[in-house]
């Protein structure tokens, strides 16, 4: 391209683009640009958090009941996995600044490994939801006939209070898990929860769960369904960001492998790092807001 004729004439530095005077100006521009991109990402997820806030303030019991279907062990494990990947990402930048190619490559590979682990755990969790009929769309769940046993992908820890643990209580045998059409299902246990809290329900909850004076399981189920809809959209978009992040990492790996980065030119590593840390921060909020509602005291 003709407009680039100048670029090669005054070629000061590797990676310096023609519109900038020097590397400092370029680094400053790129980093401000990346931060503004993150601001827009924060507002993007902010819309989702607003949705969450509105519905949670309207239907807190339904949200707590829905949250109890999630496995806080996997959620917590994933939080740790992401934090480790953030550490390795930070170290990638650290080594890129020092031009240490081998450590860079190792750290990028580790980051990718932990990122993939996160997605793997997410897949286990989604499968679990599929098997238990908690995907909010009717017909998208596993279709289970009478007599079949649902699979349990989750681990029950001693201190963990779970719906699956509640299912194992005596009495669960009389209500075997049947979901012939793959609809969204809630358990008896959820209804017990709302019955316990009968006296402290807010006006909007009373309207939301009751038909007249009687608790309406279908109406209550639909409120839990909203929780799961929000759960899938939020974690799904987060997972999408993780996948994009893995793509970035693959590109970085190739760049680092070919020894592109040095103490003078490491902006791509630093910028990808910002993105990766941002995705981690989103999860830091998603974990308590989705997994840890009413963990203990609603049982």
């Amino acid at each position: 391209m003709a407009s680039h004729a100048d670029t090669h004439e005054h070629y000061h530095q590797p990676g310096l683009q023609h519109q900038f005077e020097d590397m400092k100006q370029q680094e400053e521009s790129v980093s401000i640009g990346m931060w503004l991109f993150l601001v827009q990402e924060i507002m993007f997820f902010g819309g989702l958090f607003t949705v969450y806030l509105v519905f949670r303030s309207k239907f807190p019991i339904a949200f707590a009941a829905g949250s109890n279907h999630l496995d806080a062990f996997w959620g917590g494990l994933n939080t740790l996995v992401l934090i480790v990947s953030s550490l390795t990402m930070a170290l990638t930048v650290y080594y890129a600044q020092r031009g240490n190619r081998n450590m860079q490559v190792i750290m990028i590979v580790l980051t990718m490994l932990f990122g993939a682990t996160f997605l793997g755990v997410k897949a286990i969790e989604y499968t679990d939801k599929y098997n238990h009929g908690t995907i909010p769309v009717d017909g998208w769940n596993k279709k289970t006939k009478k007599g079949e046993k649902p699979e349990h992908a989750s681990i029950v820890l001693p201190f963990e209070t779970k719906v699956s643990a509640a299912e194992a209580k005596p009495g669960a045998e009389e209500h075997p898990y049947v979901n012939e059409r793959g609809v969204f299902q809630i358990t008896e246990h959820d209804l017990e929860l709302v019955a316990q809290e009968k006296d402290t329900l807010t006006e909007s909850e009373r309207i939301g769960y009751y038909s007249g004076d009687v608790l309406d399981p279908a109406k209550f189920r639909d409120k839990i369904r909203i929780f799961f809809w929000i759960y899938f959209v939020m974690t799904g978009l987060h997972a999408l960001h993780m996948i994009i992040g893995l793509g970035l990492m693959a590109w970085l790996l190739w760049k680092a492998w070919t020894n592109t980065f040095s103490a003078d030119y490491y902006m791509p590593v630093e910028m990808s790092g910002l993105y990766w840390h941002f995705v981690d921060i989103v999860w830091i909020f998603l974990f308590p807001l989705l997994y840890l509602l009413g963990r203990h005291f609603l049982h």
Partner: peptide, 13 residues
């Protein structure tokens, strides 16, 4: 920058 992402997520939802 501050507003447009919100319409994006709204339309996505």
């Amino acid at each position: 920058i501050l507003g447009t992402p919100v319409i994006a997520i709204t339309i996505l939802l």
